[in-house]
Amino acid sequence: MAKKFLFVNRKAPYGTIYALESLEVVLISAAFEQVVSLVFMDDGVYELTRGQKTDAIGMKNFSPTYSALGDYEIKNIYIEKESLEARGLTLDDLQHLVWEDEDDDWAEKDSIHLVSSKELASIMADQEVIITF
């Protein structure tokens, strides 16, 4: 039975393993046909920055994988506005993630939603399972 899962990402990539572990669990949950949404808040917003290049630190650059989330039917990715602003970032600094609507001739639709802390509270209240990394 499908449940509404929300994965809350709060850690920067590469410095710890949390961001990558979260991504793996997200993909597994989505592969098991759960209804999966994501939140990026606090340092988690850094996971989605454009132009990550990890050759010199000898770690796998997993940022391209976020573009596959649409294929996994993940259509709702919430970015907390307050976290972005505290870091001097805007949505333009982040990857533009979309999902393709099979029923609308594969039209690309935005997955990213910029939300306030207050809006995030009601999104979180609406979930059946919340897992925070």
Binding site: A31, K60, T65, A68, D71, Y72, E100, E102
Partner: peptide, 21 residues
């Protein structure tokens, strides 16, 4: 090609849909 672009091997459901497209 999928791996090259996204750095993952897709799950079977994702593969089926993507092949269809």
């Amino acid at each position: 090609e999928y791996y090259e672009e996204y750095q993952i091997a897709p799950a079977v459901r994702v593969l089926t849909k993507a092949i269809g497209k």
